[in-house]
Nucleic acid binder design. Structure first.
Lengths: 139, 139
DNA sequence: TTCAAGTACTATACAACACATAGTACCTAC
DNA sequence: GTAGGTACTATGTGTTGTATAGTACTTGAA
């Protein structure tokens, strides 16, 4: 439970969305995409991107065409299919809902919950430990 | 690659953040949290929440105290530890960065990439298929 | 011509996590 | 004391990002 891991989890959820967004603006091949992402402070690795593109292609969200390069092997330039466009739109809606929900949650004031203070402890509850803040591991 | 799955992936990354945010406003027990999340259109299930809380507690981000209920067994009321506060602040910063990055990506205009049109096809490239839009599965 | 270096893509094993599901313990009420 | 509800626990599964190694093509220099 380190911070890097959690940050990576956050990124993870929106990777597809970001990649589709980049491709949506115009054909792109993997290195383009990596550069774009990095330019927006979004880490992504080859080992992540290639499988993801393959998955999207096999789901008929993307197509590609081979384009020769003058500095190395040919490249796969990806673009969105109609189905991919539709998918992207749904993801965009989802993202907006999510961002709204987070904003609502994090900006809400306190004292909506926390009725716990009114409930009295049970002095004779059979299995309830009496210490207020427990630190015992129980796995 | 259905939309529900991807939406779930998006949620996944921010679950910890949201839960910490709720607890941060005041002590809460699991059902409180589920209700709060649902109230913000954020689906979460028991089977997800309980392991997550246990993980956070074992990482010393949360503590709990037992509080008797007058309608069932006693409840674990969770609250943030200092370490948890710190963790939350880092997550908040990460979320803001991420949200910014997505905004930048999705609102960027086209025509920054897509220089692909200028590159000519190689008619004699050995292993390059000549069809423009491929649909072959290759796994 | 052949060998090295760089670029582009592929394949495989691994770890983290949400989710589904079943199970246990406690409480209240009839 | 037994049934039903609430709170929490335990285990297995599928998806997916990541790490790492490997293959194929191109260019350029010895």
């Amino acid at each position: 439970m380190n911070i890097e891991n959690t940050q990576s989890q956050m990124r993870k959820g929106i990777l597809e969305f970001c990649i589709l967004s980049i491709i949506r603006r115009g054909e792109a091949y993997p290195s383009d995409i990596v550069d774009e992402m990095r330019g927006c402070n979004l880490q992504i690795l080859e080992g992540t991107l290639y499988p993801l593109l393959t998955r999207l292609k096999n789901a008929d969200m993307l197509t590609y065409r081979w384009v020769e390069s003058n500095s190395g092997p040919p490249r796969k330039y990806f673009s969105l299919t109609p189905k991919g466009e539709e998918f992207y739109n749904e993801l965009e809606a989802t993202w907006n809902e999510l961002a709204n929900a987070v904003t609502r949650l994090t900006t809400k004031k306190e004292s909506l919950v926390s009725t716990a203070g009114n409930v009295s402890f049970g002095p004779d509850s059979p299995n309830i430990p009496t210490n207020t803040s427990t630190t015992d591991k129980q796995e």
